[in-house]
Amino acid sequence: MNFTVINHDVHVGHIHIIGVTSSSLVLVGDSETIQLASAFDTPPESLIIGPFAPIVVTDEGSKK
């Protein structure tokens, strides 16, 4: 595949960002390769309503 890019003028005024989080990128410049990965796990089991005791986790990663 042939891929041609022509970069003309880029002039930006103000950039206002509240947060850059969880594998995010703000890039003012050029890059060849960008790979951003994010895994966020909050299954229904992660909402625990019960006796307020410390959470004990076994080696397999399951809660008890």
Binding site: I17, T21, S23, S24, S31
Partner: peptide, 24 residues
């Protein structure tokens, strides 16, 4: 550029680079 926070494997990059690889 005005940012409040940069967190959890994130980057604000001024300038050029070759490879960006992040994982959270």
């Amino acid at each position: 550029i005005r940012t409040l926070g940069i967190s959890s494997s994130s980057a604000v990059h001024i300038g050029s680079t070759k490879l960006v690889q992040t994982e959270v």
